[in-house]
Design a protein around this nucleic acid. Sequence first.
DNA 1: TAGATTGTTAATCGATTAACAATC
DNA 2: TAGATTGTTAATCGATTAACAATC
Lengths: 215, 215
Amino acid sequence: MPRGKVVNVERTKVSLACLRRLPLYLDVCRHAESEGESLISGTRIAEELGLEAIQVRKDLSFTGILGRPRIGYVLKELIQKIETFLQWDRSHPAILIGVGRLGQALLGYQQLRRYNLNVLHAFDIDAEKIGKTIEGVSIYHPAMMKDLLAQQPVEIAIIATPDHAAQDAATLAYNAGVRKFWNFTTKRFRLQGKVVIYNESLISGYSVLSVRSPT
Amino acid sequence: MPRGKVVNVERTKVSLACLRRLPLYLDVCRHAESEGESLISGTRIAEELGLEAIQVRKDLSFTGILGRPRIGYVLKELIQKIETFLQWDRSHPAILIGVGRLGQALLGYQQLRRYNLNVLHAFDIDAEKIGKTIEGVSIYHPAMMKDLLAQQPVEIAIIATPDHAAQDAATLAYNAGVRKFWNFTTKRFRLQGKVVIYNESLISGYSVLSVRSPT
DNA sequence: TAGATTGTTAATCGATTAACAATC
DNA sequence: TAGATTGTTAATCGATTAACAATC
């Protein structure tokens, strides 16, 4: 007999804020696991991250995990539940458009790779870069995109071009069948049809730091 | 006689979400200005960004701008108001800790420079990099930090080290007098005392893209 | 057992959205 | 003028937090 009814909120209905916190919990769990622990409480996770325990418990409940009062959660199970919830247990094929310094930094970002973000190809208009390979990813001219993706579709396009090229890059990827976009430029682009766009917009962080003062 | 009472919300009390949107408005305004326009309506800004007009008007009101019904806002004035509100009309001295690819990408990020983020020094433990200059910024060993900042204090420390070095980097900067931290690692660090920490956490964007589907 | 922790329901809080008078 | 747009007050919505019974 289950201890609690499984809330079973649609994965797609969980708030953005919660989705952004789940990777933090995962990180704490992995760390605890690497320390040889096998159980962890919501209270403990909250402390590590400076959050409220009730928020952690609430967020975790969306993954379908069931903890034991007084004991906490089984680490191995919790890690697995979060990864499954985030769909990080399957591959997410992607392309990178714009192999500047930021793009190269993303290619080298091990944490993304570890969680199955799988960059298949990179694209750049710089003739110097085309034909080269960075972090095992080959760089092509954007004109090649449609054919390459026709052979093997991808889920996500990472847009790391200069600002002025963002819209064209997104449109090109859209026309090649991509429907999810991770935008690292400061420009917002528009695409007709159903898409998911996540704008990373580094300038926002700067605006917060400029205005906020230590309390 | 003023048309409306100035709400005069404390800069520090404006929501994080609003603070993150203001740079977007600024960008739209600057673009419109470069097209030779001199007026812009909240409706227009909202359209460009795919937001609600009422939200734009509300956000803009925090900057103290007053628009004219039927006309909109004077572009020049609005740009100036947003920049002043964000404190981007003055210099924000900063240091960069960790000159990897991500750190280098940040140094080359013109938009930050344009809005007065002023990286005075960079730090890295790689002997290959120490003594070199990137984008006009000299790279030092972290041991130099305290002395350098004693000569000229900085406001913000940008942490772009490998994850495992994040806490040490932050502590070092804290001890050198820095109280605002822009964290690009996936680790959350802890500092005693009053500080502002903005966690950029790229992995969060990936979690959102992994779960969300085009509606 | 006593006390810590879970999961759920209810209350609070804050941000977004709606409504609308003022006005250019 | 008529109609678009502003600024403000009120309503709605959703996320966070509080309260608390269940339980190991």
